[in-house]
Computed example of a mutant assay.
Amino acid sequence: MKKIPKIAVFGGGSWATAIVKMLCENLHQVGWYMRNQNSIDYIKENAHNPNYLSSAEFDVSKLYLSSDINELVRYADVLIFAIPSAFVKAELDKITEDFSSKIVFSAIKGIVPETGLIVGEHFNKMHQIPFENIGVITGPCHAEEVAMERLSYLTIACTDVKKARLLSKCLASNYIKTKTSDDIIGSEYAAMLKNIYAIAAGIAHGLGYGDNFQSVLMSNSIREMKRFIKKIHKMKRNINNSAYLGDLLVTGYSVFSRNRMFGNMIGKGYTVKSAQMEMSMIAEGYYATKSAYLLNEKNKAKTPIIDAVYAVLYEHKNPKKIFKKLTELLD
């Protein structure tokens, strides 16, 4: 695909909004699917998303907005999905168009709950899209900093490096640096796992643990991530690269991290339901924790941090007691 492709972004949240902003820096037109017609009408009139990243202004003439998912599947050559993983299946079920020949990139940092698959595998198995046409967009990158045009970094992963390079060019700008990778499975699992470790960091903070423990927790998290991913997809990868360690650190430490915020509330004594109700955005790590725990029952990697977060979120164990035990297992 040498010509500039038509690209559509699917999702109305902060990350979808940030990706549309990045693409608008380079493309004459960007497709944008949002299920809420009122949000679309507002953007057309006011040039910004009413609910997320309201500081990000758009040239509305560049936007092809629609609340009809099939209309934008027909329009685009490249489909970028940035829908929360909990709603992915419901949205994909609306598609009646055959999109098996399209190029699909996932900007979703989680697992599809209904199938227990990372999003790329879900597209492959459920929608017959070949792996060479599936890619992943990962950080380290917070949507809020994209809106402020602060220097940010993206990793674009695809087994077909030409497609990764093509999308990289469409996303890069003076404030967005991009690099490519062929480790699509590792990148996607890393993007999912780092949300679990961010919840752990948040719980620890909420319980009153300081920076010293947080540094040990993050150090152990990257090693645990390496063990987990190696069991699933063994290949040569440097776990210290930005797509793995960098993304983990920004999610574990940043004030913009919704997963850390969610964990912090749990550590302070909120129940899971009350923490979810308090937050306006979804903490992907909540769903990822269950999926990773169940997957690891088969793979048997050593994962004390995932086990601890699972015990708190799903077995309703006392966070203080669980993290006291965890401190004895880390080094």
Rank of each mutant, 00 (worst) to 15 (best):
Met1Arg: 11
Lys2Thr: 14
Lys3Met: 14
Val9Tyr: 15
Phe10Thr: 01
Phe10Gly: 01
Ala16Met: 05
Ala16Pro: 08
Ala16Tyr: 03
Ala18Ser: 08
Ala18Glu: 02
Ile19Gly: 03
Met22Val: 07
Cys24Val: 00
Cys24Gln: 04
Glu25Asp: 14
Gln29Ser: 13
Val30Ser: 07
Trp32Ile: 04
Tyr33Gln: 02
Arg35Trp: 10
Asn36Val: 12
Glu45Leu: 04
Glu45Lys: 11
Ala47Asn: 06
Asn51Met: 04
Tyr52Gly: 08
Tyr52Asn: 08
Ser55Trp: 00
Ala56His: 08
Phe58Val: 04
Phe58His: 06
Phe58Asn: 06
Ser61Gln: 12
Lys62Met: 05
Ser66Gln: 14
Glu71Asn: 05
Val73Trp: 12
Val73Thr: 15
Asp77Met: 08
Ile80Gly: 10
Phe81Leu: 11
Pro84His: 06
Ala86Arg: 13
Ala86Ile: 12
Phe87Thr: 09
Ile95Glu: 11
Asp98Ser: 03
Phe99Cys: 02
Ser100Cys: 01
Ser100Trp: 00
Lys102Gly: 01
Ile103Gln: 00
Phe105Asp: 01
Ala107Thr: 01
Ala107Gln: 01
Ala107Cys: 02
Ile108Asp: 02
Pro113Cys: 14
Glu114Asn: 15
Ile118Pro: 15
Ile118Thr: 14
Val119Arg: 10
Gly120Asp: 04
Glu121Ala: 14
Pro130Gln: 07
Pro130Asp: 12
Glu132Ala: 04
Pro140Gly: 10
Cys141Arg: 00
His142Pro: 03
Ala143Trp: 09
Ala143Thr: 10
Glu144Ala: 12
Glu145Arg: 11
Glu145Phe: 12
Val146His: 07
Met148Asn: 07
Ile156Asp: 08
Cys158Leu: 00
Thr159Ser: 03
Lys169Cys: 03
Leu171Ala: 13
Asn174Tyr: 06
Asn174His: 09
Ile176Gln: 12
Ile176Gly: 13
Ile176Pro: 14
Thr180Met: 15
Thr180Pro: 13
Ser181Ala: 10
Asp182Met: 13
Gly186Thr: 11
Glu188Thr: 08
Leu193Lys: 09
Asn195Gln: 07
Asn195Trp: 06
Ile199Thr: 06
Gly202Pro: 07
Leu207Ala: 03
Tyr209Ile: 12
Phe213Met: 11
Gln214Met: 14
Met218Val: 06
Ser221Asn: 10
Ile222Leu: 11
Arg223Gln: 03
Arg223Pro: 00
Glu224Met: 06
Arg227Asn: 10
Lys230Cys: 02
Lys231Tyr: 04
His233Pro: 00
His233Leu: 01
Met235Pro: 00
Met235Thr: 15
Arg237Thr: 05
Ile239Gly: 09
Ser242Asn: 14
Ala243Phe: 10
Ala243Cys: 13
Ala243Thr: 10
Tyr244Leu: 11
Gly246Tyr: 08
Leu248Gln: 05
Val250Glu: 02
Thr251Arg: 13
Thr251Val: 13
Ser254Phe: 11
Arg258Ile: 08
Arg258Leu: 09
Phe262Met: 09
Gly263Gln: 08
Lys268Pro: 00
Gly269His: 05
Ser274Trp: 00
Glu284Thr: 12
Tyr287Gly: 11
Ala288Leu: 10
Thr289Gly: 14
Thr289Ala: 13
Lys290Ala: 15
Ala292Phe: 11
Leu294Glu: 15
Glu297Met: 15
Asn299Trp: 07
Ile305Phe: 10
Val309Phe: 02
Ala311Ser: 15
Ala311Phe: 03
Leu313Gln: 04
Lys317Thr: 11
Asn318Phe: 07
Lys321His: 07
Ile322Ala: 03
Ile322Trp: 03
Lys324Phe: 08
Glu328Thr: 08
Glu328Trp: 01
Asp331Met: 02
